[in-house]
Structures are given as C-alpha cells and as structure tokens.
C-alpha cells in the first residue's frame, strides 16, 4: 500500500495515518452493516410483496372460476346487487333524469335491435295484457287496446336515452306515466316488482316497483311528435330514462306484478339486473 501523501496534502504523521486507517476500517464496517441490514429488509419486503401478489392473483382466479349466477361469477353478481342496494337506499326516490329543451332533440332516433319483434306487427290484433294487479278477484287479468291507453292522462318528456353500449340520444316522448296506469291497475300489497314482455315473450324485462312508479317512467306511444314508429316499438313501448336502454322494452305485450325479481333478458346475459342510472 503506498504510504506517500499526495503532494497537495499536508504531511501526515504516523499517528495521523493510523487514526485515519482506523476510521476507514470503521466506515467499511458500518457500510457492510448497512448493506446487510438493507439486504435483510429487502428480503422481508420482497417476500411480503411476493406473497401479496400471489394472494391478489389467487383472489382474481377464485372470483373468475366461481359458479355463474346469471352470466357472471357469483361474487361479481353479488357486487352488482350490492351496488343496486346502495343506489336504491341512498338515491333513487329523489333522483330525476335531466329534462332538455326540444332544441336538444337529435333526429332520427337511433335504432339498435329488434329482439322480440320478429313477428310482423298487426296493429288491429295488438293488445296489452295486464296480469296480477290488485283486485278482489283471484286472478286479475285485463286486456287493453290503444284507445284505453290514450284515455289515460298524457305526459310528455324530453330526456336523454342512454344505451348500455355507451351511445346516448335526446328525444321527445309522449305517453302515459306508469304511475297513472297503475292507478287503474295497481300493484297488490307486497308486490315489489313489475315484469314486461313483448307479445311473443322473446324480450322481457324486470323492474323494481319504485323505478316503475318513478314520475318519468312512461308507457310511450309518441316519439319526436309522431306516432311511435314500428321499429321503435309501436304501438306502445317503455320509456324509463332512469335505466339503461336495455330496460326500455319495445312493443309491450304483457305487464305483470311480481313478488320476486321477474326474469330479465339482458340480466341473463350477464348484465346488471337493476341497470339504474
């Protein structure tokens, strides 16, 4: 080891050199200690991190492989239902979909699907079947034509229709509030759900009674000032702006009350049953 001091440095006595060597040794010892301690902490942290990663992957794998409940692994279906409860308990009754001026209407109204409307529509043969409403008779059953519907109070609204796919469009609707319809055909005590179907039962939706009774929920027979066109569900369709489009059943053939959630076409395909906005 060279023992010559650099020319720029002052002369160092042997005592000084010994002291500095001692200090250097002390630093090296400290550094080794620090590195060891760091290595120990690293091992522990990376082990915990690795286990947490495995745990996370395990949870994901577990959820993914659970038995299906209406097209979703049941834990995800359960979360959708919890979200629904959260929504209904905290907000639903107060919330109203924003109303727009007529100038916000964009025409023509977009057409997406014709599920449940394969049979050609014969207006003279169409009727609305109402089942299970409150009455003294055992089996309440009624059949209405459009004249009966037109006699009920008329309501208009300009609202933004929202498809679950993501597109939205503002349109003007006219029809009967479901709440007004339900004055004549009320839900029996303890019946918290409403079901609706197309005449061929090819498309069907379930609604909670509170959403159906919402003041903006219409049985609509006019779109943008004209009689409801056939592709949009003539002669009578559901217009429920507090729900995604998937609930807005076209060509209503049957309405019934239920104590349990009625079956729902898109919920069976894995979508949220509630589908509330």
């Amino acid at each position: 080891m060279p023992n010559e001091p650099m020319s720029s440095l002052p002369e160092q006595t042997p005592e000084e050199i010994a002291r500095l060597e001692e200090e250097r040794r002390r630093i090296a010892e400290n550094n080794a200690l620090v590195e060891r301690e760091m290595a120990r902490r690293s091992r522990r942290s990376f082990l915990v991190g690795g286990l947490a990663t495995l745990g996370g992957l395990g949870v994901w794998e577990w959820i993914r492989t659970r038995p299906q409940d209406l097209g979703q692994p049941w834990p995800l279906r359960r979360v959708l239902d919890i979200n629904e409860e959260f929504s209904r308990d905290l907000f639903t009754d107060r919330a109203k979909a924003p109303q727009f001026p007529l100038s916000a209407v964009r025409k023509p109204f977009r057409l997406n699907e014709r599920i449940g409307m394969d049979d050609p529509l014969v207006p003279s043969e169409w009727k609305l079947v109402v089942d299970g409403y409150n009455t003294d008779e055992d089996e309440a059953h009624a059949e209405l034509d459009m004249d009966a519907i037109h006699k009920m109070p008329r309501t208009e609204e300009t609202v933004e229709f929202k498809c679950i796919e993501g597109w939205s469009q503002t349109a003007h609707w006219a029809g009967v509030k479901f709440a007004d319809f339900a004055k004549q055909y009320p839900a029996p005590e303890g019946y918290d759900y409403v079901g609706m179907e197309t005449p061929d039962a090819g498309y069907y939706v379930g609604l909670d009674l509170a959403s159906a009774m919402h003041p903006q929920t219409l049985l609509a027979y006019e779109l943008d000032g004209d009689a409801l066109p056939e592709p949009h569900g003539a002669p009578l369709r559901l217009m429920i702006p507090t729900k995604y489009g998937i609930k807005n059943l076209k060509r209503i053939g049957r309405i019934f009350y239920s104590q349990e959630r009625p079956r729902d076409y898109w919920a069976e395909q894995g979508y949220d049953w509630y589908a509330g906005l």
């Binding site: 500095l20 200090e23 590195e35 760091m38 690293s42 942290s45």
Partner: peptide, 19 residues
C-alpha cells in the same frame, strides 16, 4: 418496496486520507 434507501454521507477526513 422496503421503505428504505441507502444514502452516502461525505466523510471529509477519510476522503483526504488517501491511505
């Protein structure tokens, strides 16, 4: 990951020692 990092503090004496 660990929360800790290794920092280096200058040691003027030792640096100068050149031994």
């Amino acid at each position: 990951v660990t929360g800790y990092e290794i920092t280096t503090q200058e040691e003027p004496h030792a640096e100068r020692a050149n031994v």
